[in-house]
């Protein structure tokens, strides 16, 4: 690999900020409740598919919001 191609590789993270694996006890407390099954399923998808999935969820959320609004207006 040439020096030029090395330069073109993205740098993973900034040396001027705390490292991405910085230990924070509050974050650690959140970690145990992260649903890794959702993440594993997402990582099987392409980026476009991930956004399509997000769009469908967003539309679903909008429908729920509208249904709630109709319920409140009818009450």
């Amino acid at each position: 690999m040439s020096a030029d191609s090395d330069l073109q590789k993205p740098l993973p993270y900034s040396p001027n900020l705390p490292p991405p694996d910085f230990f924070d006890p509050v974050v650690e407390a959140y970690k145990k409740d992260v649903d890794m099954t959702l993440i594993r399923e997402n990582l099987k998808l392409t980026v476009t598919e991930r956004f399509e999935k997000h769009r469908k969820l967003w539309e679903f959320a909008q429908e729920l919001r509208k249904a709630g609004q109709r319920l409140r207006e009818g009450a």
Binding site: P10, L11, P12, Y13, S14, L17, P18, P19, P20, F22, D24
Partner: peptide, 11 residues
């Protein structure tokens, strides 16, 4: 990058 995103979120 994922690493940088974490750093930005923390910052």
């Amino acid at each position: 990058t994922l690493d940088m995103l974490i750093q930005l979120k923390r910052a």
